[in-house]
Design a protein around this nucleic acid. Sequence first.
DNA 1: CCGCCGGACTTGACACTGTCAACCCGGCGT
DNA 2: ACGCCGGGTTGACAGTGTCAAGTCCGGCGG
Lengths: 201, 201
Amino acid sequence: MTDLREQVLSASLALIEQEGVGALSLREVARRAGVSHQAPYHHFGHKEAIVAELVTRGYLRLAERLEEAERGRGTPSRRLLRAGLAYVDFALSEPASFRLMFRPELVDRERFAASGEAGERAYSVLVRLVAERHGDGRAAGLGSEAQRNLDALVTMHWSMVHGLATLLLDGSLCRRFATRRERDSHVARTMELFMEATGRS
Amino acid sequence: MTDLREQVLSASLALIEQEGVGALSLREVARRAGVSHQAPYHHFGHKEAIVAELVTRGYLRLAERLEEAERGRGTPSRRLLRAGLAYVDFALSEPASFRLMFRPELVDRERFAASGEAGERAYSVLVRLVAERHGDGRAAGLGSEAQRNLDALVTMHWSMVHGLATLLLDGSLCRRFATRRERDSHVARTMELFMEATGRS
DNA sequence: CCGCCGGACTTGACACTGTCAACCCGGCGT
DNA sequence: ACGCCGGGTTGACAGTGTCAAGTCCGGCGG
């Protein structure tokens, strides 16, 4: 019916959501779209191109959510916290995209530059938020020692939210909670603990 | 020559290390072991059983490393830090195992209980270390509020090291460092920053 | 109007995968 | 001596990604 290209993309995502990343099959996607097994090739060339497109779009949506938190009201700490929660929430609400985004063997970032750039855009939001919170007061003039510490701070924040997201999604944390509400309050408590410990506001 | 079972396991790991998780192929493994494509089936039944065995052994080695850090000298904080560094180091030195361990769609934890138990063993080390550091002074008598906070602390520590490990392995951090030494010092700085922020010793 | 050109799609083939089935062989216990 | 069985083999089947043709059709130039 509508644009087959879009249909292929959404069918792929749905398939991954239902059966897991490993079950993504062009032929099954074609079947679901009601076309022959080669039709998708006319729009994408190979499987990797489909995944690359999904990865790019995933990073763009993540970047949007983070930028939304960045634009919000409140202290730098508060906005950084909201960005962190948005990161985790993204992973939980779009698990298929999130898993694809962090499986580098699926899409070669060299050949699909758009995916890499979208990832950089999301990353840069985090860098700005951390820098804002942890005082880059004297603008760009930090010595290399201070710069290295800022780098470490960014890595620390990112590792925290990324670890939380992946453990909730794929790790043992995913079996620890009976209800969604329970899980969410655990996440909130953990993030607040972290922000409080590392905070200076 | 020697035990084919062991040969299959090590060949599988080597193959994953070289070509990625997706490239694990029983037939290629058999080829490398110099046997027919069905020989591995005589020892494992299906592919999942091979992966499950690798996952179990991976968790056991990780648990050993963590327990080694636990037994070491120093304050609780120091030992927790060393356990965290051991976690990251494990991921970097055994990337194939680590990736398998956190891809739950590959092995069903219900049917392969050994994998789950080995994972629990590693997890419990972390729980003990965090509890020891963050004062479970009055033993088992914590109220449910304090218990929830301890849970959140464990999740926080685990998320931190797990996020750091996966970002170094699969995320954008892996392209940020030219030399291993540079990378390691970044890891050390990040972990120390984290421990200092969350520490009470 | 005809012709034809190119994009969207189909059909058919190939090599590869995991897995089922049958067969084969050599050492062991009875 | 015989049968059994663990470890190994070969052969087949369905499913996969991908290459190579062929088919259909709408819009264009002449």
